[in-house]
């Protein structure tokens, strides 16, 4: 399984936690228009879940860019590689 696939699995779980949707229905092409619960409150809940699941923090610009699963994976991927580097330094 590629790194991206592994990230997608965790993102799907975050969607289940935040929006109570079937993770199998969440694909890279899923956008905010596809999920009724993805409103302003839902978005913050999703962000909090992603931060917890991946151990990262998302800034204002990133929150404003997370319109789809593809965007989320794009934003999270470099953060994880930075995290691995800093973790391995410890």
């Amino acid at each position: 399984m590629s790194d991206q696939d592994q990230i997608l699995v965790k993102v799907r779980e975050a969607f289940k936690t935040a929006f109570d949707v079937d993770p199998q229905l969440v694909t890279m092409d899923t956008t905010y228009s596809d999920i009724a619960a993805w409103d302003s409150t839902g978005h913050l809940s999703l962000a909090a879940t992603l931060e917890e699941v991946f151990g990262i923090s998302l800034d204002v610009d990133e929150l404003n860019e997370m319109e789809s699963v593809r965007d989320i994976v794009r934003i999270i991927t470099p953060k994880l590689s930075k995290k691995v580097q800093s973790d391995s330094r410890c």
Binding site: Y32, D39, S40, G42, H43, L44, E65, E67
Partner: peptide
């Protein structure tokens, strides 16, 4: 309906020449 991305709404205020913004405390 895109207040989950507040910057989009703020840009739309500029784009459409809005004069009023209404919100509850959370907004």
């Amino acid at each position: 309906r895109r207040f989950m991305f507040p910057d989009k709404v703020l840009h739309a205020i500029a784009q459409f020449g809005c004069t009023t913004f209404a919100g509850v405390p959370t907004a």
